[in-house]
Design a protein around this nucleic acid. Structure first.
Lengths: 243, 243
DNA sequence: GGATCTTAATTGTCAGACAATTAATTGTAA
DNA sequence: TTACAATTAATTGTCTGACAATTAAGATCC
């Protein structure tokens, strides 16, 4: 954790980079305590506010956590799957919403990845996953369900499918792809007949999962992608017609 | 951008959350200028250092950028693909390194996702991608190449394959999976005969890509996964024997 | 021994100041 | 009038010093 090198950047950014490097390189291991803010400020020859800004940067990336009190301080944080999920989702959501990624590209990416999970999911699925899928389907059949809740349930259904692959790294990677689609999906209005088509496909996929029939799951996802894309085209056409 | 609600957290965290919500919800659009630090400090009834800590948190997530000078200030940042890649990779790398994710799980996730790209990649690949793959193979055949450079080239090869799918969202999602494996791969020593096996598979995959033969690409990736896992088991066994 | 108080260390927050940077404005000369 | 230089104002970057809040450890008392 020596003096940072890259000039022409904020001191706080330089210090944050230096500490981050120390963490990533393993020089600072999980749960290790960093020097106190006062010590860091003398080490780096900067004031405490500057050190604090650096620490806040790291905290924003969940690289450290801080504790007040006598034995408090900043500690290297173990990045939990839950935290990683959260960051993955926010980053993906922002990327999709701010970069004007068209629906088809995002949709293709999502279903491509999801199809990849299907073989593992079909083979390893447990009753828990099947139950989650079934209960989301039941929710989707509620007649007075709002569009946004329908989409949320859709996300839940697909996450259950992904989780069934029993590979946490895969679940983590897919989390972004699946959840980030929700805002885009929310722009589609799911009127009754369309919902029924999607639900029928969900049922088909769940049945295939129950029988551990991987190729049918893949085929179901294929159809679901086609259906979703067709729906989005309709929504876009309708929006264009209105203007 | 009203007063934050969640109590019992740092003021700077609350303020950061409030501004982040305003950005995510679209209340603050890309390139919009936030109020100056002085204004924010009066708006939120906190001191300027506290506001600054909040802004640094957001800057760490590339949600804003700051500019000094007369017309300076904090601006909502458009999250570029490059930025998103970077964040994706650091998060994935940390998750894998700090959570003691075993090699097989990470490897399975990576190859599962990569196989999913294969059909699109085989169909859409351009000469550029093929050239990148070939040149990485050439690099891998250099006799004096260090293990870490061999791994880096391996990553380059696979990224070219993923990019050939011509879907930036997919490339973004895969970036984490592929790059985060590199530190894990670096723990394997690639002695000469093993390298040749991997290179042969790379050549097989590149040839299949050239002929746009999707199923052969998938089969090649399958074998590559098996080979990589076998190699890692050997490395682990050797390490265990040494102690 | 156990409960309570004190103390010290540490982070959280504040106020005020000055330096550095940058664009707009103003002044000046060709 | 135009081109260029100096000034000015706004803003972020940084520092100093202080105090509040929190927490664990030690000291004290019963």
């Amino acid at each position: 954790m020596t003096r940072p090198q890259k000039a022409s950047a904020d001191l706080s950014a330089q210090i944050a980079a230096a500490i981050r490097d120390a963490i990533v390189s393993g020089e600072l291991i999980v749960d290790a305590r960093l020097p106190s803010e006062a010590e860091l400020s003398t080490q780096f020859c900067v004031s405490r506010p500057t050190v604090r800004e650096a620490l806040k940067r790291l905290a924003a990336q969940s690289l450290i956590r801080t504790q007040r009190g006598a034995t408090g301080g900043a500690f290297v944080n173990r990045l939990s799957y839950a935290e990683a999920y959260r960051q993955q989702i926010t980053t993906s959501t922002l990327l999709l919403s701010m970069n004007e990624v068209d629906f088809e590209t995002a949709c293709e990416a999502r279903y491509t990845m999801e199809r990849a999970c299907a073989p593992l999911a079909a083979e390893r699925r447990e009753d828990e996953h099947l139950n989650r899928m079934r209960s989301e389907i039941a929710r989707q059949q509620e007649p007075d369900l709002a569009d946004s809740d329908f989409c949320a349930s859709d996300v839940g259904f697909h996450r259950a499918l992904v989780d069934a692959a029993m590979n946490p790294v895969l679940s983590y990677q897919l989390a972004g792809a699946v959840e980030a689609m929700q805002p885009l999906m929310n722009m589609i209005t799911f009127i009754s007949p369309y919902r029924e088509t999607l639900i029928a496909l969900h049922i088909r996929i769940a049945d295939a999962m129950e029988q551990k029939d991987a190729s049918s799951v893949v085929a179901g996802l294929d159809d679901l992608q086609r259906e979703t894309m067709a729906l989005s085209r309709k929504a876009i056409a309708k929006r264009a017609a209105r203007t």
